[in-house]
Design a protein around this nucleic acid. Structure first.
Lengths: 202, 202
DNA sequence: GTCTATATCCAGATAGAC
DNA sequence: GTCTATCTGGATATAGAC
């Protein structure tokens, strides 16, 4: 099988992803993407026709990575309680590997709600095994009755928000880089402990 | 005293604030700001010289509203326990009154870390009465020992993140507008309860 | 202070040689 | 497929009349 991982097209795509993630659709420049890819600007148009289409491809891959990558975890055959730290660990690693991903997706989605809504609607988040397990545990009286969406938002807010405000945090307080890693490590445990304690205490 | 609230200059500033909040620095257009203010485009340059300066003024006011407005609350002479729901309520109202504020500040700050750092550093967040009270309670063994920054991030993440992802949430699940208000009302109580439970359970 | 007209620049996109 | 050169539209900014 031929390795197509390093074709011109993928080089452009990877460069575009980096630039769009950092600058957004409005702030990105085709010239900068070309420079980042180390090729000529016309090549962008040759392979992707125009800026809009190049952006679309980057956006949809990013959206899937941000929203879709967690679904398999939520549908695994372990307990809801076991899933929580796994989800936290998952998002931590996604954020660490793609520092601009979350803010990019949130931002572009906010500005172009209409354009993407057809692609995105019917997100199966609320139909996962995880949510079914939570509802069951609530019915059984094992945990407090709360909207599953509140639980989901508690998990994601607590782990994603620190990353998107990371530059601000490092600026306003004196975080050294070594402190940051420890801070995130602590945070993973705190979030899981806090949520479990809340759910089980009725 | 003369009322200067409706001068051309303030009309421009208010219009610029709305447009910059929605579109960001890179996405905003001077023409759109002029249209929004109902005046001629040259007026923007007459009063604010150029786009950069107009943006700066908008940004710094927004930053103060986002970060600075909570400081008085944290320094009031009530207990740390009383402050928590007040802070949550405060941020809820700021978000509801300025739907684009948080994402705007987070975003522009991320893209121009250097440009604003001198203005922003030495944020007195960690020197507030609130943080002093938390440390004291930890020393007394009244609450669990955690970095105050973890507590602060738990409060802000849980209440701000849902607002900045609001369009996404309304898109991916079926939130009707009436549900949303109830969801936020529930959320305020959940966050406070969850955090207090966690802190007091050692 | 407010407007119209215009200068200047820059980014996206295309034409066409190789 | 890849490059250089160029076109075109749009956005910031200025000049200058009133």
């Amino acid at each position: 099988m031929v390795d197509n991982a390093n074709t011109t097209e993928t080089q452009i795509f990877d460069a575009a992803l980096r630039v769009f993630h950092k600058k957004g659709l409005a702030g990105a420049r085709m010239q900068e993407i070309a420079d980042e890819a180390g090729i000529n600007k016309s090549m962008l148009h040759y392979y992707f026709r125009n800026k809009e289409q190049l952006f679309s491809q980057v956006f949809f891959q990013s959206f899937r990575k941000f929203m879709g990558s967690v679904l398999p975890i939520l549908n695994e055959p372990n307990t809801w309680e076991e899933k929580i730290p796994v989800v936290i660990e998952h998002y931590t690693q996604v954020m660490q590997g793609n520092p601009h991903l979350a803010l990019f997706v949130i931002n572009e989605l906010r500005q172009n709600t209409d354009g993407f809504s057809s692609f995105i609607k019917d997100n199966p988040l609320l139909n996962t095994v995880f949510v079914a397990q939570l509802k069951q545990a609530m019915q059984n009286g094992e945990i407090r009755t709360v909207q599953p969406m509140q639980i989901w938002l508690t998990i994601t807010s607590n782990i994603i928000f620190p990353f998107i405000t990371e530059p601000m945090l490092k600026m306003t307080i004196n975080f050294h880089d070594s402190d940051w890693d420890g801070f995130i490590a602590d945070r993973k445990k705190i979030i899981a402990d806090m949520l479990l304690l809340y759910l089980k205490n009725s």
